[in-house]
């Protein structure tokens, strides 16, 4: 879930308020977004991807980070270079190559298709599993 909005980095562009599909942010009195509805966060990282100044950190947890968690420690996250990682991978931001240019999913789908069995569940597969587990 979203844990950090960096007061220092935020440029008050409101992009996160707008792009969050779950409507988690609200505009604070000073123009800096606040995490208004954290319980609604679906941990999709879209706000991180769209924030132009890497001011946001979304922890990988599906619930709120516990008190004292390193996921809420802005200074440590900045130090570790943890903010803005997704945007970098997507290749968004000046001077970067779109991450989709490096996409090699065709290698993995081909590998899967070449396997002896389909990846989907089949009645035969189910029987094998729910009956005797294979050796």
């Amino acid at each position: 879930m979203i844990e950090v909005v960096s007061q220092d980095r935020c440029v008050k562009c409101d992009v996160c308020v707008k792009v969050c599909p779950m409507d988690v942010f609200a505009l604070g009195p000073d123009g800096i977004p606040v995490i208004a509805r954290q319980d609604d966060c679906q941990t999709c990282f879209m706000c991180e991807a769209h924030c132009p100044v890497d001011a946001l950190f979304v922890a990988p947890l599906s619930g709120p980070a516990p008190a004292g968690s390193p996921y809420t420690d802005e200074a440590a996250l900045l130090e570790a270079g943890a903010m803005g990682r997704y945007r970098a991978v997507l290749g968004w931001g000046g001077g970067r190559t779109p991450g989709s240019r490096l996409d090699q999913n065709h290698v993995f789908t081909a590998r899967l298709a070449a396997g002896s069995q389909p990846a989907e569940e089949t009645p035969a597969g189910r029987r094998r599993v729910s009956g005797e587990p294979s050796a």
Binding site: L112, Q117, A119, G125
Partner: peptide, 15 residues
Amino acid sequence: LELGDMGTARQAVAR
């Protein structure tokens, strides 16, 4: 855990 290939593993994991 010996769960077979990808087609059967998910169901075994589910169990």
